[in-house]
Write a protein that binds this DNA or RNA. Structure first.
Lengths: 291, 291
DNA sequence: ATCAGTTACGTAACTCGTAACGATT
DNA sequence: AATCGTTACGAGTTACGTAACTGAT
């Protein structure tokens, strides 16, 4: 089970082909075949069917474990090497809705202090951000999501351990100004099973809301909040968003959600070794326990 | 960074000696020396000082990562191999305070159903149980602890992901019947900074309570709840325990805790692959979300 | 002088690539 | 016949053990 073998196994699993995996990893097809064979021999099980190439049950399990293991291995390496030579840089990762004025101000302040600090901001979806934080690709990450009040975000595997809440606020349903629902003082998501929703997987996937059975009328495959808010204002569907964000968009009204109790929450993730200035920024952001 | 090297690195780190590590792993001292050298070359850092052998900063970091990585690797292997040949067994792990009548009844029922099921119960401290669950050494684990209501237990690294709450109840301070505090209807832990506590690391370490500055008068290094309750009844010190447990002990009064809000919680951890009958038992235990 | 880790070197094992082979469409 | 995975074999590399070496107490 050495990482080499796991890596090629993952490549085969993902490409569905020995030759494609070989190409991706700059091996010969033969080498890949041999590596898979030794892995299977080691574990005493078939991991893949051939012709067509597909994962067996054991293979599926290994695939899940292997991807995580490889990320963590990478993370360990990054942590150790960076313990030695802390880079003079600040790379910040954000999920789209994790951007706040407060954060922006804090970053400005940091950059003002350490002049010419090489800094870099990356906005991406949650999974990407969380793994990047785990491997040390980014120094500091802010990840957002909706949960029950006081509940932490349920973050994906390789990172969620050391998350600290830094901000939390009400979640609302964003509806166009004229819409009949806009006059309501409170909504229950359960009552809205008939409504159509905008599913924006990269921004605020409703599949992650603690509610079932919402129906997607439109899928938005981008990460731009302005566009998303525009779509909602144009009546393409409902969407759950942080209250402050809705408040500052013309054409949209935020209707408080009565049930389930829901807040928008931002959590901070730090690379295992995050030296100054990441530590400093984390401090500025307040990293209040927020329970 | 292949696991082989990590394993010997961990051995050296733990024994504090190349030769001892070599002996433990059935290598020659020379082999160990070479392995550490390649690891250091790979990471580009010294991991250990020689004469005396001790971890450098980078080494300490790697040590933390490496132990976890090795456990997870073991866990992955166990999971995959057991996916193939689910063992006809049920090994149950418990922390001492996770034992309940309900659980006992559920186990009895399972064993009644599948006659002659090879089963096995292991009571140990939290760390041991959590890693054992992660590696598949045990099929099902029940881990207890004290937290704020609705908060999940903060479990140690390699396992805490898929924990589900199965039971929760009030936590009380156990005081001997005659004790002046026994007449109080409610206590605040903060007010008890002057009192002496029993520290029972294997059962209910107060270092894990969400309170600071408690003072240990007596340390109990065992895992037997009866002895512990006896010590408390004899006035050796105060201890936080689940209310039902205190209620059924003669000589002890449980005084409700007003602040911080505290509950005793039991969570269920499953081995990644837990086939019947572990799944069945988990079902019987109700694995209610408990939020 | 002894103890503990390093280095040199030879051998054994492994890993990969080439090339021939086999099976599936 | 073409495609894709397997197998055989040889070459290059790696990894370990023996043994000599080095430095510290």
């Amino acid at each position: 089970m050495d990482p080499h073998l796991l890596r090629t196994f993952v490549a085969v699993a993902e490409t569905g082909s020995f030759s494609a995996a070989a190409q991706r990893l700059s091996y010969t097809q033969s080498a890949v075949s041999q590596q898979i064979a030794t892995l299977e021999a080691d574990l005493g099980t078939a991991l893949l069917t051939r012709r067509p190439v597909a994962l067996t049950t054991a293979g599926e399990r290994l695939h899940r474990h292997a991807t995580l293991l490889l990320v963590r291995l990478e993370a360990a390496r990054a942590d150790v090497t960076r313990a030695v030579a802390p880079p003079g840089r600040l790379i910040l990762g954000l999920t789209p809705l994790a951007w706040t004025e407060q954060m922006s101000a804090a970053l400005a302040r940091i950059r003002g202090e350490s002049a010419r600090l090489h800094s870099h901001v990356l906005v991406a979806d949650r999974d990407r951000i969380v793994t990047a934080a785990a491997t040390g690709e980014i120094d500091l990450a802010l990840v957002d999501g909706f949960t029950a009040p006081n509940d932490p975000l349920r973050l994906p595997e390789p990172g969620g351990q050391g998350a600290v809440g830094v901000a939390g606020g009400p979640a609302v349903v964003a509806v166009p100004d004229g819409h009949p629902l806009a006059r309501r003082s409170e909504l229950s998501l359960g009552d809205l099973a008939d409504a159509y929703w905008i599913d924006a997987p990269a921004v605020a996937p409703f599949s992650r809301l603690p509610v079932d059975g919402l129906r997607a009328g439109l899928r938005y495959d981008g990460a731009d909040v302005t566009v998303l808010a525009g779509l909602a204002a144009a009546g393409h569907g409902l969407i759950v968003l942080p209250a402050p964000l809705v408040a500052q968009r013309p054409g949209l009204t935020g209707v408080p959600i009565g049930s389930p109790r829901l807040v928008h929450r931002i959590e901070l993730l730090r690379a295992p070794t995050s030296e100054e200035p990441a530590t400093r920024l984390a401090g500025l952001l307040g990293a209040e326990p927020l329970q």
